[in-house]
Nucleic acid binder design. Structure first.
Lengths: 312, 312
DNA sequence: GGTTGACCTGGGACCGGTTTCATACGTTAT
DNA sequence: ATAACGTATGAAACCGGTCCCAGGTCAACC
């Protein structure tokens, strides 16, 4: 493979001058510039990206940590990050975790090794304090509200507020007993925390039996449907954590000819639109774009993306 | 930032020995190994990934070229690539093109610059011969049948055969006049070519007015529905190029209270399932996994992934 | 006692760029 | 006449690793 030294040798000029030509810098005489450019073209020369990155100390690459690559929630965020990254000349690398903490830790160590200029956590299993420990190696963005004193940058939806709106809507609809689905009902998940808070705020204490945990896919929604269908006292409304999951619930109720109940989805996906379900659009592409911009700005700004409740 | 030379200096041993410790190689005395390991831990040292990549001449990164990041077709392929890549310790970088040839070319040039060990084209705008010209810089995989004499590796669905099956099924259903949707009806798109071939084979010449081109999203499907609904002679069946797009057609027909017609989707997505549409599952995750394996194997194997027609 | 081979260690070239600094020349201002 | 400055160029350090090769020790074997 031909390198910058070959070009220098063949052109009779120094490596420095060739480097100046490559980078379109000032202070190169026109005739020499042209000669060097011709030789580079003749030899089919392209500067080595990795060498450049090493020398410059940056990779123009952002790592995106996410549990599953092909899940609509994360796909929409990634879409936003990729779009914004493309416009800014950054590459986006996918870092799937399956919510495995060891894997997350491995990515954090890779971050220390300068493989990425910044890291975006679309979701996480590790403690926030763990992420903060790696903050000194570069910008880290999380997609949740990490609290005012957190030094991480953050872009997040106003899930609490939008869920409050959705719940108030159910009250106006006369819904008495509402079931709730969460993906991960633990202390780590900000999404779960916000949803519980909103429930508490509008409807009071959430009965344990009205909560279905571990909902990620359509199939999970289907199982949740089976669960809620046999519940006493019966629920007359369910707040799902995604339209696809809501669709699973609706499918169960339909297939078993159960009375129709109100199911609210989230993310404004095609499935919810097809079934005419009310939903909450969290504007995840915008969230992704915001996350990217924070990643390359190296601040610790916390940025709220407004969500929108959509009646149907 | 502390580097390998710091560790060498502080430990009193040579860079070579430190390198051996880092890489868990033989021929390091136990006491020295332990001392070096302790110093690395004390200094919080992590080897620089970029330097390593430069030295080794590889990045353990695969670039995935795709038109849109958040489209179910490509998302499923990417999912397969990411899953297989993760298992093999490779990073996956997304390279969105919007079908812009200049952008594709830029990625090919980046490939020459050793930024990626291999490139996977999930779709393309450039000519195959263009891609082949870059073949000498490393493995390039395309996700279509590039023809027997093509030196690129390839993983692709048997779209022609599966569409033939779908069309034969429509015949058995008594469908007389079938409309067809394509995403890009040009010479580049193998998917369009295979679909046209299958139509020719089963139903004969495809009337120009029965073809709707440029269908990518649900909204496109909706527009296609509007188009086909006003057509004379009326179509009594439509083959769409994805379930989401098929759902667009169905939505149009529903919303305008038009007589129900048979719409066949593709990719076996949730939308098709919800609407009970027959579909063709092209097993795109498997395709992605196959593409990844080809990418790191540096052969020019052509691999067919069987598709499956699903009646509903 | 000499050869062989396994084990251990360090020097230094190499991967392929960027960037700082020293130098030198030609104008222009003082 | 000379200081000052803009332009042009190259040498060499630097980014931070890998790895080949030379050299040394020590035990086993003939």
């Amino acid at each position: 493979m031909t390198n910058i030294h070959d070009i220098a040798r063949l052109s009779g000029y120094s490596v420095s001058t060739v480097s100046r030509v490559i980078n379109h810098q000032k202070y190169v005489a026109d005739d020499k510039r042209q000669k060097i450019e011709r030789i580079m073209r003749d030899l089919d020369y392209v500067p080595n990206r990795v060498a450049r990155d090493l020398s410059k100390g940056r990779t123009k690459t952002i790592g995106v940590v996410l549990p599953y690559a092909n899940h609509p929630y994360f796909a929409r965020i990634v879409d936003g990050i990729v779009t914004a990254g493309f416009a800014a000349g950054y590459k986006i690398t996918m870092l799937p975790t399956n919510y495995d903490m060891t894997t997350e830790r491995r990515y954090l160590e890779e971050f220390r090794s300068k493989a990425y200029d910044a890291l975006v956590f679309t979701s996480r299993s590790s403690a926030l304090s763990t992420l903060e420990r790696y903050r000194k190696y570069g910008p880290i963005v999380c997609c949740e509200d990490p609290g005012a004193d957190c030094t991480l940058a953050a872009a997040y939806t106003d899930r609490r507020q939008s869920v409050v709106e959705a719940l108030q809507w159910t009250q106006r609809q006369g819904i008495q007993n509402l079931g709730v689905l969460l993906s991960r009902n633990n202390l780590i998940s900000a999404s779960a925390r916000m949803t519980r808070q909103a429930y508490q705020e509008v409807l009071g204490a959430l009965p344990a039996q009205n909560l279905f945990d571990g909902a990620v896919t359509f199939e999970d929604g289907y199982r949740a449907g089976a669960y809620f269908a046999q519940l006493t006292p019966a629920v007359d409304g369910i707040l799902a954590n995604s339209d696809d999951i809501a669709a699973g619930i609706v499918s169960y109720y339909r297939e078993h000819q159960l009375p129709k109940i109100t199911v609210i989805g989230q993310e404004n996906l095609l499935s919810g639109r097809l079934l005419g379900l009310p939903t909450i659009d969290h504007h995840l592409e915008a969230l992704g774009q915001a996350a990217f911009k924070l990643a390359i700005s190296n601040t610790h700004t916390h940025q709220l993306i407004k969500s929108k409740f959509i009646e149907r």
